[in-house]
Nucleic acid binder design. Structure first.
Lengths: 134, 134
DNA sequence: TTAGTCACTAACCTTTAGGTAACAAATAAT
DNA sequence: ATTATTTGTTACCTAAAGGTTAGTGACTAA
């Protein structure tokens, strides 16, 4: 079937565009991948700025994990830790502008997640098992 | 500071919207999270439909992982395995329509990933270490 | 005949993400 | 005086993700 001998320059352009996208997505997943990073940013964007608030809003996260994720987010320039000296000392985390660049991504993911849940629900309702053939 | 005594109904609306988004994102991450799922879908959308093509296009993935990820993608309705009987038997994977609903998400992630890489590069160039202050 | 490709699978191992529990220092509430 | 809350840290452990190596059966090319 002449394998990849035909249209070599078209193939190459495709491959390059593909690599560009793959690299970008891989980069993104590297910093915001994992179970919690986006969730923390989402909760903070909705006014949860204290450690305990975050722990309450994000069900299932433990103090240990929240603490280490906050540190990573700070190192990567997404958030800032603000310590207000006084009695008592209060600690607040603030989103930095860089976090807002994630809004489009979060929006797209939210939209997809809602559609996905709908799909699963309607599949359950109509008794359609997730098909596996061959 | 009257903590959460003021504006209780506004707080509640915020919390609920927040929960909705958190649930949606969590649902999305559950099915398309991880290092490889999106990458496979991206490569397939660009014409890589054979096992070996995918292995070549997606640098770093092993046969074992590719095989198991393809199975999961099939179970979740993203792709389909097509076996063409003949000499030799050929096996092709096809994206199902459901995969195309990920396009917006992939687009947003690609865009962000590219911006992120630019940011890192310019930080490196200007000698700015990723700041950590307490 | 030998070597190579395709599409995997099995067995095994390492790494990392994340969970659990306990503790701590300070202040607030009863 | 005691108990609870806030904001974590530390040590330990498990489970899941993913990597490595080898091998298979069917075909193809040299």
């Amino acid at each position: 079937m002449a394998k990849e001998k035909g249209q070599p320059e078209i193939n190459k352009a495709f491959t390059e565009e593909c690599n560009k996208v793959l690299t970008a997505v891989s980069d993104a997943l590297y910093v915001i991948g994992g179970k919690w990073k986006l969730m923390i940013i989402i909760a903070m964007a909705r006014g949860n700025n204290r450690f305990t608030e975050l722990q309450r809003q994000i069900t299932g996260i433990s103090a240990r994990v929240l603490s280490s994720e906050l540190k990573e987010l700070e190192i990567n320039g997404f958030i800032e830790k603000k310590v207000t000296v006084g009695y008592p000392v209060t600690i607040e985390y603030q989103l930095l502008p860089y976090s807002h660049m994630l809004e489009e991504l979060v929006g797209a993911m939210t939209k997809w997640g809602i559609q996905h849940r709908e799909k699963i629900k309607s599949e359950r309702a109509s008794g359609g098992a997730t098909s596996v053939r061959v």
